[in-house]
Amino acid sequence: MKPDNVLILPGWQNSGPDHWQSRWEALHGYRRVDQHDWMRPRRGDWIAQLEDVILATDGPVVLVAHSLGCILTAAWAEVSRSTGRVQGALLVAPGDAERDELRGVLPSWSPIVRQRLPFPSVLVGSRNDPYCTWDRAQGLAGDWGARFIDLGERGHINAESGLGDWPQGRALLLDCAGSQI
């Protein structure tokens, strides 16, 4: 698999330069799915953009989602006819768009799609994520059929978590991709 078949799916407000997703993009040549509006994301727009990128990619893809990108993965999988192109997904720190404080700023993202994903997936959760409780992250992993990984207390598993290039996460990604990237 070519590195640009690994699709980076950032969450709301995108991932900054110190975020592990951005570092992987720079280090390994993975490709970010750029959304039209990072600040006021609309579920339908983000789903359409992901579908367009997958259809334009030659061969299978692996998804690397963070926060709202995890919720996007589930929403896209519910409506797409292209799910067979996904070899696997690494889902990190899902953002709970159904929380009261997020529902108002992310109105089109509720309810969260809770059906089993039609491809192998791993969900990495943190015990002190301010955007998704520990129990909720485990519940989403169960609903989506994802293997759950406990990362301990690492906040939202983002740039502020001090992960740097996050080699442990990349090992999980290689496992999802069958070590083919």
Rank of each mutant, 00 (worst) to 15 (best):
V92R: 03
M39C: 07
P130Q: 02
L123F: 00
Y30I: 07
N158D: 13
R42W: 04
G69C: 14
H28I: 02
E101Y: 11
R43W: 09
M1F: 12
V6I: 13
H36Q: 14
G29K: 01
I112P: 05
L102F: 10
Y30L: 08
S82L: 11
R42I: 05
E98V: 12
S110G: 12
G139V: 07
P3Y: 10
L173G: 09
S108L: 12
D18L: 04
D58V: 06
P41E: 14
K2C: 12
G142Y: 05
R116M: 02
D34K: 14
Q115R: 13
S110K: 07
V64Q: 00
R116E: 05
Y131E: 05
G11E: 14
V53N: 07
G84Y: 01
L90Q: 00
A146R: 08
T83G: 03
V92P: 08
L68R: 13
R31I: 04
R85A: 15
L27K: 08
I149W: 00
G16F: 01
Q115D: 12
L68T: 15
R85N: 14
Q180N: 05
N128T: 05
A26G: 08
D129L: 05
L173Y: 11
R103Y: 11
L72W: 04
Q138N: 07
L174R: 15
A177I: 01
T83M: 06
A93C: 09
T83H: 07
R136I: 03
D129Y: 03
I71R: 09
L151S: 15
R114Q: 12
D58L: 03
D100S: 15
D4K: 11
I149A: 04
V86Y: 04
I71M: 13
G84A: 09
R103Q: 11
V122M: 02
R81M: 14
R43A: 13
D143K: 08
P107H: 10
A77E: 01
L102C: 01
W134D: 15
L106K: 11
N14H: 13
Q138T: 06
G155T: 00
S108R: 12
R85S: 11
I157A: 00
W12V: 11
G142C: 00
P3E: 09
I112V: 12
P167S: 03
I71T: 15
G95T: 14
Q180S: 14
W76R: 03
S67W: 05
A48N: 11
K2L: 15
H19V: 07
G152P: 04
L55P: 02
W76H: 04
K2N: 14
L55H: 10
Q87E: 13
I71P: 06
P167Y: 02
R127Y: 01
T133G: 15
I149P: 02
A26R: 12
D175K: 03
R31E: 09
P111A: 02
S110V: 08
Q138R: 15
L50F: 08
G84I: 05
M1T: 07
T83D: 01
S121H: 06
I181P: 10
L91V: 07
E51L: 10
S179G: 13
Q35P: 03
N158H: 02
L50N: 09
R42E: 15
A141R: 07
A141M: 00
L172K: 04
A48D: 15
G16M: 05
G125P: 06
R170M: 10
S22F: 12
D129V: 09
S110F: 11
D37H: 00
R127H: 00
S15D: 08
G29V: 04
